[in-house]
C-alpha cells in the first residue's frame, strides 16, 4: 500500500476488527489517508491507531470513534456517537455534525472539534488538550476536568465545569447552572485571541463575547466552613 495516497475502506461487509486492522496496516505502510465509507454509525471504527494517519469518515459514526489513539487526525462528515476521541493523546478530530454524550472523555492531548452541539458530559475528565463545541453543550460538561481548554460557543446545561481541578472553559452563551467550584476569571493576554484563532481555523462562527471560567479551588481540599459547596458537588 506504500504508494497509495488515500486508501478507501467500505465498512459495509467488513467486521470491525478487519476495518481497524486495515487502518493500522495503512498507517504502518505510511499511507497518508484513509477514506471510510458506509460507516452507518458503526462503533469502534478507528480505535487504537498509534501511528499518524488521516481518517475521513463519510457518514455518521458510533461509539468511541478515534478512541485510544495517538497522532491521528480525522474528519467525521456526520455526527458521532458517545465518547468520540476517547483518551486521545495527540492529533485532531473534527466532527462536522453533533456529538452524543461524553465527547472527548479524559483526553490527554490533541484537539476535538464538534461543529454542532455536544451532548451531556462533554469534556468530562479532560486531562489536557482542547475540546471545541460550536453549538451547545449538555449537562455536566467539563465535569472533573483536570486541565486543558474547553470552548463552548453556545449555551451549557446544568453543572458546567463541576468539580474541575484546573484548565479553562470558554463559554459564549449562558450556563443553565454553574457547577460547584467554578468561577469567572479575567482572560490573560493572548488567551482570547487563541480561542478565536481556533474557531476561525475551523470556520466556526464566534459568539459576541466569551466568559473565561476556571476552578476556584474550593474543592481541592475539604473545608468545613464551605459545606454547601461540598454537599452539592455533583
Amino acid at each position: 500500500m506504500a504508494n497509495v495516497e488515500t486508501l478507501v475502506i467500505d465498512c459495509l461487509d467488513k467486521p470491525t476488527r478487519d476495518i481497524n486492522n486495515l487502518i493500522r496496516q495503512a498507517a504502518d505502510d505510511g499511507v497518508p489517508a484513509v477514506e471510510i465509507l458506509n460507516t452507518r454509525a458503526r462503533h469502534n471504527i478507528g480505535v487504537g491507531i498509534l501511528k499518524p494517519i488521516h481518517l475521513i469518515y463519510r457518514g455518521h459514526v458510533g461509539y468511541y470513534t478515534v478512541g485510544l489513539c495517538d497522532g491521528v487526525t480525522a474528519e467525521i462528515h456526520g455526527s458521532s456517537g458517545w465518547g468520540v476521541g476517547d483518551n486521545l493523546l495527540a492529533g485532531e478530530v473534527v466532527v462536522e455534525g453533533n456529538a452524543a454524550s461524553s465527547a472527548a472523555p479524559s483526553i490527554r492531548g490533541g484537539s476535538i472539534v464538534v461543529k454542532g452541539n455536544a451532548g451531556p458530559r462533554a469534556g468530562i475528565y479532560l486531562k489536557s488538550g482542547d475540546l471545541t463545541v460550536g453549538g451547545d453543550a449538555g449537562y455536566m460538561s467539563g465535569f472533573m476536568m483536570q486541565n486543558g481548554r474547553m470552548i463552548v460557543c453556545g449555551n451549557a446545561a446544568k453543572g458546567l465545569g463541576d468539580s474541575m481541578y484546573q484548565g479553562q472553559i470558554w463559554l459564549g452563551g449562558k450556563a443553565e447552572e454553574m457547577g460547584s467550584g467554578v468561577t469567572e476569571a479575567d482572560a490573560e493576554p493572548g488567551e482570547l485571541d487563541a480561542v478565536l484563532e481556533t474557531l476561525e481555523r475551523h470556520q466556526i462562527k464566534a459568539p459576541k463575547a466569551f466568559r473565561k471560567l476556571q476552578s476556584d479551588r474550593s474543592l481541592w481540599n475539604f473545608n468545613k466552613h464551605d459545606f454547601a459547596a461540598w454537599k452539592d458537588a455533583l
Partner: peptide, 21 residues
C-alpha cells in the same frame, strides 16, 4: 465517563479488545 449501561459496556469491551488486538 463514557459508558453507563449494559449495551455501552459491550461496546467498551469491544474497544479495549480492538486496542489490545
Amino acid at each position: 465517563p463514557d459508558w453507563m449501561g449494559a449495551d455501552d459496556l459491550y461496546m467498551k469491551l469491544e474497544q479495549i479488545r480492538e486496542v489490545t488486538n
